[in-house]
Amino acid sequence: MLLATVVVQLAYMAYYFWPFAAKRSPDAEPAPTHEQQHPVSVIVAARNALEHLRHLMPILLTQEYAEFEIILVDDRSDDDTGLYAQQLTQYYPNVRLVTVGSTPEGLAPKKYALTLGIKVARYPYLLFTDADCVPTTNQWLRHMARGFGSGADIVLGYGPYDEAPGLLNKLVRYETLLTGLQYLSFAERGNPYMGVGRNLAYTKATFLATKGFASHIRSLSGDDDLLVQDAVALGKRAAVVTHPAAQSVSEAPASWSQWWRQKRRHMSAGSKYRATDKARIGTFMLANGLFYLTTLGALFFSPVDWVPLAIAWFVRTSAILATYAGASRRLNDRQSVALLPVLDATYFLAYFLLTASLVLYRKPSRWK
């Protein structure tokens, strides 16, 4: 069993992860001529996000791009989010405000808010980020829009978390790197299955083709990954953009309970994935989990043959260190290589507990 789990993980490393990790993002700046062909509507849904918008809007407003607009969707805020957005519309002609007074019963609030923002978008290319995110540079829009230049319908970006002290932050950032490595490398191999709403773009035609969020409008999660699922099922093509200037950074969850709720919400969307994607992702996650479980079984419930056990651990650990370190360089999301084995074991233990909690207790979580 231990040998089988190592073989499966090495197969994923060799076919998906290492080709992605070893590749370098292009250093060349996007050609401005492409900008005329891809005018972009940047859409941000915000609820009680005044302080976040004060950090986000200055960098959005200074994006170097030929033609774009910013649509702020004030989703039922009871602070000064709407007032701040209204003031921006008076000074910046490319800023527009959509106000959501209430959400129809049974509909997911964020998806409803995004739908209203998309409905009024002037341009055929849509770029999304969250109110609590900040693009790393004023070239973010330019690099993300460059993904449309290849004829793609969807552009998948990467959204890391800010570095901070503490084990939780290291674990969250490791989990984000591993998730990014999965969905970006799978997409580069022709198997896109998800994106992250804090750095995702697609055409308005793609949104209309999937009938928006209709297939999952009552599900609280999935405004990003389930939209990608529906689009790919219709034959839409996805491009990957990993340049450091094309990233949008967020603050990591500040407490274990906050991270737990966030992960439960995100993982709940996985049950609606296509069967092939479930099998592809599930096989990798199961192989990692069983690797640790079979190791524990060998240590505590049977005589230990240390030589093959040590060889299996050395080969597997060396492979993940090399691959994950390479991915962190490509994505400019530097991780502590020495801590990777510890974080990997901790994450898959947490993943097992999260999966069990979703099976046993399905209380929904609402977005803030």
Rank of each mutant, 00 (worst) to 15 (best):
V134A: 08
D27I: 05
Q262W: 03
L116D: 05
L56T: 02
G147Q: 03
R237I: 11
W367M: 10
M57V: 06
C133Q: 03
Q247K: 04
G151S: 07
S271Y: 13
E188G: 01
G147D: 06
L309I: 09
L296W: 14
L126A: 11
S185E: 01
T33M: 08
R142Y: 00
T283E: 14
L200W: 04
Y161C: 08
H143C: 13
R122M: 15
F148W: 05
A238Y: 00
S150L: 10
Y123N: 03
Y123E: 01
A14N: 13
M13A: 14
K111R: 07
A11C: 15
E163V: 07
I118P: 05
K236Q: 11
F207Y: 11
S215H: 15
A108K: 09
D153S: 01
Y16R: 13
R274I: 11
L61D: 15
D305T: 08
F213P: 00
K111N: 02
L234M: 12
L290M: 15
L339F: 12
R329C: 07
P253E: 09
P39F: 02
T62Y: 15
W259Y: 09
A164W: 06
M57S: 02
E163P: 00
V337G: 02
S255K: 05
T355N: 07
Y174H: 13
S185I: 00
G222R: 01
I118M: 13
A209F: 06
Q86M: 03
D27Q: 08
R329P: 01
V40M: 06
A121H: 03
A66S: 09
G180M: 09
N191R: 14
S215W: 05
T99K: 12
L296M: 15
S357F: 04
P303S: 12
K363H: 13
G190L: 12
T206D: 03
K363T: 14
W260Y: 06
P58T: 10
P253L: 08
L226T: 03
T317V: 07
L56Q: 04
Q9V: 09
W367R: 13
A322S: 03
V315R: 01
S271C: 13
R334I: 11
F348V: 11
S77Q: 09
H55I: 07
V7S: 07
L177F: 05
L141N: 02
K23R: 12
V315G: 01
N138G: 13
N169D: 00
V42Y: 03
V304T: 14
A4Q: 11
N169A: 05
L116K: 15
A279T: 12
I70H: 04
W259M: 08
S357N: 08
T210G: 07
T99S: 09
G197C: 06
D277Y: 13
R96H: 06
Y65T: 01
A279L: 07
P192D: 07
Q63N: 09
Y16K: 12
S219H: 12
L321S: 09
I320M: 13
L156I: 13
L2Y: 04
P19A: 04
L167F: 07
F291P: 01
Y112V: 06
I70L: 11
V100N: 01
